[in-house]
Write a protein that binds this DNA or RNA. Structure first.
Lengths: 225, 225
DNA sequence: GTCTATAAATCGATAGAC
DNA sequence: GTCTATCGATTTATAGAC
């Protein structure tokens, strides 16, 4: 291996280590991440970190992209093990919830309150759509195999607004695929967020997974699954 | 008016003014509220603020309680104008959403990511339940007048966990009232949060209200309304 | 690429004069 | 109840030696 390759590898490992410590810091400081505190934990000077991330926001962006990718992959892997659409939705939703429970502060970073003063760059939009795309593709698959229940028609101007998106993703399907995908995504993520953020306080303590599934099934039913 | 009363009134006005400025500050700094910055904006010394709020967290608590009360009252007033259960739910949900759109940072304060290092004191739990109680009471009313649709039975241990709460609030009704109330609350608040936090980015821009109503109706239908 | 040193701020909270 | 002054800490970011 050439010296250049070695340097590249060491740099990649150092970058990964910084992110790992930064993720740990998210837990105590929330999105109010401090580059200096990360450097202190790593036993290096704060200025050294700037060789890896040009600014605090750039480090934050890296963490956000990693989080989207991690939950996206978790959901995709889980869904791949199921065969029918409803099974895929349930698997993906449970995987997302479990990832959130294991990484609550990263969940808050991507689905919680926006970080004040932070504007997400373009690089974050594509990984951000992974979970929703998975839901959408699964629902579309169900439509194509006629496995979607009949429901009252959608009324409202919003469905016309969704028409272009529907046409670009699923030109053969009605735009309600998009509406129901977004609605289900909101419902599932809402259920996760409110459980995680403590709104389920003393009501359900043991069988939170069961209550979550109850809500996911409701979301699926509303989408016709 | 006695001098004591005058002092009390002046103090109350000053307290209110501090909170007003603090609410403005939530917009730029998020939950990372700075007592000093508030004092600076008011043209007073930071130490003077401590005569009104013993700590930063106490000021935060006051803002949280105010926010819960404000959105609770908005929802209650709106619901009071409707007659049937579904109408009350729709009115309450729209009122909650409109309050959130008008006060996004206060919404984030009560329904967004938890503030790191902040533990909510007991005083916050009662105002926090107002909106959910409104939904629950309305649904209970519908049950009592036999206006709830038949649905497949609930299965899962979580429903047993909700039994005590159901017994204390609605001893004459099945515990699913509670499950469906919480689920609907999560769904409605999730729809508001994700719209507010930018997850609806370029999909629905004009008729967000219509898309929100679509989701609220789904939540109501799932609850049998 | 890592270090020390530093600039120019911020913060919560307290002490003590008035 | 408000002020000044202060303690003791924090932060982002940069400059320059090695």
């Amino acid at each position: 291996m050439s010296a250049a390759n070695l340097r590249a590898r060491v740099r990649a490992e150092m970058t990964e280590e910084i992110k790992t410590v930064a993720r740990r810091h998210l837990a105590t400081e929330g999105a109010n991440l401090s580059l200096r505190a990360v450097a202190r934990d790593l036993g290096m000077a704060s200025s050294a970190v700037y060789r890896y991330f040009a600014s605090r926001d750039e480090l934050l962006t890296a963490l956000i992209i990693d989080a989207y990718d991690a939950i996206g992959e978790a959901a995709e892997r889980a869904a791949a093990e199921a065969t029918e659409p409803l099974g895929k939705w349930l698997a993906a939703a449970h995987a997302a919830r479990e990832w959130a429970l294991a990484n609550p502060h990263e969940w808050a970073l991507i689905y919680g309150s926006p970080v004040p003063g932070y504007a997400a760059p373009r690089d974050t939009v594509e990984p951000a759509t992974r979970v929703m795309l998975l839901l959408g593709h699964t629902l579309a698959e169900a439509y194509r195999s006629n496995a979607v229940a009949e429901r009252p028609p959608v009324t409202g101007r919003f469905i016309e607004e969704l028409q272009p998106i529907a046409a670009s993703f699923y030109p053969d399907l009605p735009p309600r695929v998009i509406a129901d995908t977004i609605a289900a995504f909101f419902q599932i993520c809402g259920a996760i967020s409110f459980e995680l953020f403590g709104q389920l306080n003393k009501s359900v303590e043991e069988d939170r997974r069961g209550f979550f599934e109850y809500q996911v099934r409701a979301a699926a039913a509303a989408a016709g699954l």
